[in-house]
Nucleic acid binder design. Structure first.
Length: 595
RNA sequence: GGGGCGGUAGUUCAAUUGGUUAGAGCACCGGCCUGUCACGCCGGAAGUUGCGGGUUCGAGUCCCGUCCGCCCCGCCA
């Protein structure tokens, strides 16, 4: 660069600079060489500007510009000139001007890019990830990571304004019972022992409350060694917070303020307070999901009662076995022909594990076409008509199964078909609290387990039910859901070691087990734990929502593939035998295919 | 662990029923071009058809195995 320094970022050069000299630096987006005159679109983190090289302005620069290729790094010094009306480019933010080069300096050459640095290059995911540097040069990813940055800053500003203290907790930690598989880190100093990377700082933030910090937050990396999805990575970031001497409403108040503030500061969107609230039971009943997008104007109907005494064995048996019969009615569904229904049936059976997809179509004359309706009594038909509001043009989909699977299948159909058929209201943002989760749920083997995590405090008046009807115990848990994406969840925690012990007991922990695993927690609570509660936002998912993208990889600088690999750095890899030696580790022979 | 889709040039795709030397756009390289902005024109180079095996006179194409990417179920909040 010599002594020359940037005077303007590329996108910042404007008509106000016409006639003055500017120095711009960046990467060559594209070169158009007309022999006599050469145009270069120069790109930096912030925009594009056209630089013109004319032999009569600077023969040397023109000569050098001929050598320049895509993605070369250059510095150009020149005079800003207003373009003639016929050469203005209305598609470009800086399209009214151009920089007439007086001098160009080649700062670095570049290998040809593996794909064009365009907004939508139509490239395979693995290619994008192997060439992540090039991928990150593209404007959409630059924008997404900028949104991510704004979210960090907004969250910090807002929480600091509410007297939250940012405190770090260890990455080399101990396994905590979030329920996911831990990432383990072998200890050299304690051979044969392992740290666990935190699945969340849950217990540590509770300890901070006991220690009297009153309000804590942290933007913190978390690790869960489970199979990945479009919205799940092995490592992800939480905006974690916890408060002392609060009830549910106090926490929700902070969550509303934080959410509203972030939307306003990061993308300039005004979200109305208070947020809509829906109970877990309502959400499951009406939408089949605990994170519904309520803009989709389709709702489920529970017909279990209508089939409790049914002669239709397929439904009756499910109800007898404790399952449910549920229906997704879609009115004016003429658009969905027989072929579409067949495809849906194939889809739910193969991909969602449904047993089948029963359906009833109501013809224009009111007649029912359906493979199952011949088994129904008049009373059952009447109940269906009444509860689903079936009418000519309606198409009813049924699932008879255990509640979670039936709801899962119909919930998926609801969102897919709702979007496909345009049954969506016009609100761009659907923000809600989901509340009133139960503390426990029944496992397949009949035992009880926690719905979220084992430290959720029960609603106070339900504590006596722990001894008698634990399944009815309501928790203080709450979720924030935006546009059908669960942004995060939280609860009040048990600050009484007695209640905490009883909950672990209901979940089947013996006194000894509970003591050995959670003794330090009991001790901490007994050291004078204040009532406390908190929340954790999934930061990556929040960026997804703010940036309006549907994949976490587009909001993380260096994401991993579905199989957990980093294709850029090529991790994970084998390590040197000496490293294993030092850790006193030996690899077992491969267990697959008999080694 | 399971289901679905995919893997051919740097890249995005094509290749009839299994049949000639695996083609095209963009990118790349060379040449020409003074107002383009997806510049244009002419020419060129570029391939272990993911990998391994099999069937066949002959395999990108059929069979078996395996690896990789994406989406989903299980798993995970």
């Amino acid at each position: 660069m010599g002594s020359l320094r940037r005077s303007h970022t590329c996108g910042a050069v404007s008509t106000a600079d016409v006639g003055s000299e500017v120095i711009v630096v960046g990467w060559v987006q594209r070169r158009r060489d007309h022999g006599g005159v050469i145009f270069i679109d120069l790109r930096d983190h912030q925009g594009l500007v056209q630089v013109v090289f004319r032999p009569e302005e600077s023969a040397e620069s023109h000569e050098r510009a001929g050598e320049i290729r895509s993605e070369y790094v250059i510095l150009a010094r020149g005079i800003v000139q207003r373009r003639t009306p016929d050469t203005v480019n209305p598609k470009m933010a800086t399209g009214e001007i151009e920089v007439v080069a007086q001098e160009v300096r080649l700062l670095n050459r570049a290998t040809p890019p593996p794909f064009p640095m365009e907004d939508n290059p139509d490239v395979d995911e693995s290619t994008r990830m192997r060439y992540r540097i090039h991928d990150l040069r593209r404007a959409p990813l630059q924008r997404n990571l900028r949104i991510r940055h704004e979210l960090y800053q907004a969250a910090r500003r807002i929480l600091c304004g509410r007297d939250f203290l940012e405190i770090e907790t260890p990455m080399l930690a101990k396994s905590t019972p979030e329920g996911a598989r831990d990432f383990l880190v072998p200890s050299r100093l304690q051979p044969g022992e392992f740290y666990a990377l935190p699945q969340s700082p849950q217990l540590m933030k509770q300890l901070l409350m006991v220690a009297g910090f009153d309000r804590y937050f942290q933007i913190v990396r978390c690790f869960r060694d489970e199979d990945q999805r479009a919205d799940r990575q092995l490592e992800f970031t939480q905006i974690d917070l916890e408060m002392s001497f609060v009830g549910v409403e106090d926490v929700l108040d902070v969550l509303e303020e934080l959410t509203v503030g972030v939307f306003a500061e990061v993308i300039g969107v005004e979200i109305q307070r208070p947020f809509a609230r829906i109970s877990y039971a309502d959400a499951m009943a009406r939408f089949g999901s605990d994170r519904p997008d309520t803009r989709i104007q389709l709702e489920l109907v529970d017909l279990s009662e209508a089939f409790r005494e049914s002669g239709f064995r397929a439904f009756r048996a499910v109800v007898d076995a404790g399952g449910i019969v549920k229906c997704l009615p879609i009115h004016d569904a003429q658009e969905l022909g027989r072929g579409a229904v067949d495809r849906l049936e194939k889809f739910v059976k193969k991909e969602l594990g449904a047993k089948g997809l029963a359906w009833i179509r109501v013809g224009e004359d009111g007649s029912w076409q359906s493979p199952i309706v011949k088994f129904f009594s008049d009373a059952e038909r009447a109940a269906i008509t009444q509860q689903t509001d079936a009418r000519p043009g309606s198409l009813l989909f049924f699932q008879a199964d255990q509640a979670d699977r039936a709801n899962g299948v119909l919930s998926r159909l609801r969102t897919d078909l709702g979007r496909q058929l345009g049954r969506v209201d016009d609100r761009p943002w659907d923000v809600l609290f989901v509340v009133d989760f139960p503390v426990f749920q029944r496992e397949e083997d009949g035992g009880l387990t926690y719905v979220h995590q084992p430290f959720v405090a029960p609603v106070e008046e339900d504590i006596p039910l722990l001894a008698t009807e634990p399944e009815k115990v309501r928790g203080t848990h709450y979720d924030v859901v935006v546009n059908g994406v669960e942004l995060g969840s939280g609860s009040l925690r048990n600050h009484s070691s007695d209640v905490q012990r009883r909950i672990l007991e209901v979940m089947g922990y013996s006194k000894e087990e509970a003591e050995s695993r959670f003794g330090f927690l009991f001790n901490a609570l007994d050291a004078g734990a204040p009532p406390h509660g908190g929340f954790a936002f999934g930061l990556d998912r929040w960026v997804m929502v703010l940036a309006n993208v549907d994949n976490l990889r587009d909001v993380i600088a260096f994401p991993k593939t579905q199989r957990g690999q980093d294709l850029l750095m090529d991790a994970p890899t084998v390590v040197e035998p000496e490293q294993l030696e030092e850790l006193q580790l030996r690899l077992a022979p491969p267990s697959k295919r008999g080694g």
